[in-house]
């Protein structure tokens, strides 16, 4: 059911000083596929996300997009290639408004000479931000409100909405259901399913295992920076997933296709 491999990393490693956060991880993501990335705290999930999104340069390994090898010098490169990322915490600028956050880095400018000087089409962006978020299926607060005035859940909703609205190939969601109530978490799962239907590849990170089991096609388990299991979601149930994560169930590395 999944399409072509769109995004792939081979053997990537990353260390912070003496801490080995990622140790030779490889991963393939297909169009229209949702991968669940799970592991204990500190397993290296966010680090892998940052490598995938261009926020960190890996110490070693390769990155392929649509079969071509790429290297990201900054998040901008990955964004321009169609890869959107929702970072765990700290993804929004709290002093900016909802629409400013949604459009950050992709502002729309006024027509003519003013636009040449970078003057912003504020009203346009406010309307469009509102529409985009609505389309994604998020109960949006007013576009011109400052993000610092929003509740944690509302902020998360804006951040997710922004990623989904802009993604063209890949969406990476690092713990998107954090801070969310049960109903809003349910909405996020719906959003993931909708993105999958549009043919996007999704990487979904969560500690809420029932959510992972519900929406993913495949589950990748990280432990101490290594991928210890990569198998179709149908091979797991709650208990085996927990066992794999904690290491009480012995694993052998599985090739992911």
């Amino acid at each position: 059911m999944a399409g072509e491999v769109i995004y792939e990393v081979k053997n990537v490693s990353k260390r912070y000083g003496s801490v080995v956060a990622l140790d030779g991880a490889s991963l393939k993501l297909h169009a229209g596929e949702v991968i669940g990335l799970v592991g204990d705290n500190g397993a290296g999930k966010s680090t892998l996300v940052k490598v995938l999104s261009g926020a960190h340069k890996p110490d070693g390994g390769q990155i392929f997009l649509d079969g071509a090898e790429r290297s990201w010098d900054s998040p901008r490169d990955a964004l321009e290639a169609g890869i959107e990322t929702l970072y765990q915490d700290s993804g929004l600028a709290p002093h900016l408004t909802v629409s400013q956050n949604v459009f950050l880095g992709r502002e729309r400018v006024k027509k003519g000479i003013l636009g040449w000087f970078g003057f912003l089409a504020k009203k346009d962006m406010e309307h469009e931000a509102h529409r985009n978020l609505e389309e994604v299926g998020i109960a949006v607060p007013a576009s011109n409100r400052s993000v610092s005035q929003l509740s944690g859940g509302q902020r998360q909703a804006v951040a997710i909405g922004r990623s989904v609205a802009w993604a063209r190939k890949v969406i990476i969601l690092d713990e998107p259901t954090n801070h969310l109530g049960a109903r809003q978490a349910g909405e996020v799962l719906q959003i993931i399913k909708a993105a999958k239907k549009k043919g996007l590849g999704v990487i979904f990170i969560s500690h809420t295992l029932p959510h992972v089991l519900e929406v993913t096609d495949r589950i990748v388990v990280l432990r101490l920076g290594r991928i210890v299991k990569d198998a179709p979601t149908s091979e797991f149930d709650g208990d085996t997933l927990v066992g794999t994560i904690t290491g009480t169930i012995q694993t052998i590395k599985v090739e992911g296709d």
């Binding site: 998040p75 700290s90 929004l92 950050l104 992709r106």
Partner: peptide
């Protein structure tokens, strides 16, 4: 806008593709 964004959250600004 970028001036505010960087002062508000430099990580978010960078993640949004701002140099």
């Amino acid at each position: 806008l970028y001036t505010y964004a960087i002062g508000s959250n430099a990580f978010a600004a960078r993640a949004a593709g701002i140099n």
